[in-house]
Amino acid sequence: MHDRLDPAPLAGQRVSVIGSTGSGKTTFARTLAQRRGIPCVELDALHWGPNWTMPPTDEFRARVAEALSGERWVTDGNYSKVRDVIWGRADTLIWLDYPLPVVFWRLTKRTLRRIVTQEELWGGNRETWRGQFWDRDSLFLFLLRTYRSRRRTFEALIASPEYAHLTVVRLRSPRAADRWLARV
């Protein structure tokens, strides 16, 4: 695992972008896919239905497998229930491993923008003040509960023989990510 600024990892044709909630996975994945001229598969769009409903696990896995059946793609997200499908097929893993204050600030800006503009998300859903700031399912609480453990989990998974085939690019700041993308 290492930070890289050389374009070698982009020789990969199947890229998974991971990171904490609010780190900018979707934006990074879209930018990378656009620059490479390959499809971008947003996992949240395959996962969330109307009223924030989730599909059964087998249905979600089937959706992801079908969406990633092509030879070239970039996807974003950390859904453990499909990790084996994604990482098993991916050749490159890009980890946006930013410090907690950076991610918290990015999540705050994104959430406020979505609430104020009433941006429609997957399945027609929208974020609300109550849902994001006073609900037990708040992404802020989720971030605080999972930040450290998720980093440990990613480190262990990346080091496991099962995923030794992956080229791993660990970017530790938005500036490093921007520099890396600039070379694409």
Results as ranks from 00 to 15, higher is better:
30 R>D: 00
74 V>A: 15
58 D>V: 12
181 L>D: 07
8 A>E: 13
118 Q>C: 15
12 G>C: 02
174 P>M: 03
57 T>V: 15
66 E>D: 15
64 V>R: 01
75 T>H: 11
10 L>K: 07
48 W>Q: 04
81 K>E: 05
96 L>D: 15
166 L>S: 07
122 W>C: 13
172 R>Q: 11
112 L>G: 05
133 F>I: 08
21 T>G: 00
61 R>P: 02
143 L>K: 13
20 S>Y: 02
31 T>L: 04
181 L>H: 08
45 A>P: 00
65 A>D: 02
180 W>F: 15
114 R>F: 12
18 I>M: 14
16 S>Y: 00
22 G>F: 07
51 N>A: 10
109 K>G: 08
119 E>M: 14
180 W>S: 04
101 P>K: 03
22 G>K: 00
74 V>W: 02
66 E>R: 14
115 I>N: 10
182 A>I: 08
69 S>Y: 04
143 L>P: 03
151 R>W: 09
85 V>R: 03
89 R>G: 10
84 D>P: 00
29 A>H: 00
46 L>D: 01
11 A>I: 02
85 V>H: 03
100 L>E: 08
66 E>T: 14
176 A>W: 01
25 K>A: 09
38 I>K: 00
180 W>Q: 10
108 T>K: 09
31 T>P: 08
119 E>H: 07
114 R>W: 11
34 Q>C: 06
45 A>R: 10
93 L>C: 09
57 T>N: 03
81 K>I: 11
51 N>M: 04
20 S>F: 02
153 T>Q: 15
165 H>C: 07
25 K>N: 02
146 T>K: 02
65 A>F: 02
1 M>F: 02
137 D>K: 15
179 R>I: 06
134 W>N: 14
172 R>W: 02
175 R>P: 00
17 V>L: 01
162 E>W: 01
183 R>M: 13
27 T>I: 05
72 R>P: 03
63 R>V: 11
121 L>V: 11
15 V>A: 06
65 A>W: 04
22 G>C: 04
138 S>T: 11
38 I>R: 01
47 H>N: 14
9 P>K: 12
40 C>M: 03
107 L>S: 11
